[in-house]
């Protein structure tokens, strides 16, 4: 039964390791991670390990983005990180609901939002 116990212990370590890991210092990040999370430099050290892990997961997709998407990503990251977990979850639910409506309806909504933004712009 010893191999089973060892396997179980390994599983527990793998499962609980994210919860017991310590926050990472900024200098420990890779150049790519630092580039993707550049707007977070001032707050980075004060973030919890969970927040850091969440941002690092998001940052791992950064190299695959187009230049325009990268620009949006960097401009929104700071505001996004300041939201409460509940606000982020609500935003995800809204985005999920929005992405499930038919394409033509989505386009209509996007057009209306652009027009509204254009009106608000000075």
């Amino acid at each position: 039964m010893k191999p089973s116990i060892a396997a179980f212990a390994l599983l527990c370590i793998i499962y609980f390791s994210p919860a017991i890991a310590a926050p990472q210092p900024w200098h420990a990040l890779t150049p790519m991670q630092q580039q993707a999370l550049a707007p977070m430099v001032p707050q980075w050290a004060g973030l919890s390990e969970e927040q850091q892990r969440s941002l690092l997961s998001v940052a791992s997709h950064y190299p695959d983005l187009s230049p325009e998407e990268k620009q949006r990503f960097l401009s929104r990251l700071s505001a996004w990180s300041k939201l409460t977990p509940e606000q982020r979850q609500a935003a995800r639910e809204k985005y999920r609901a929005f992405s499930q409506i038919p394409g033509d309806k989505q386009e209509q909504v996007r057009q209306i939002v652009k027009e509204e933004q254009a009106k608000k712009a000075p």
Binding site: S57, S60, R72, R92, Y95
Partner: peptide, 15 residues
């Protein structure tokens, strides 16, 4: 969750 976060952060719809 990560997939949704990236989509929200990069979509042309404002945050």
């Amino acid at each position: 969750m990560t997939h949704l976060d990236v989509a929200i952060l990069t979509d042309d719809m404002p945050l």
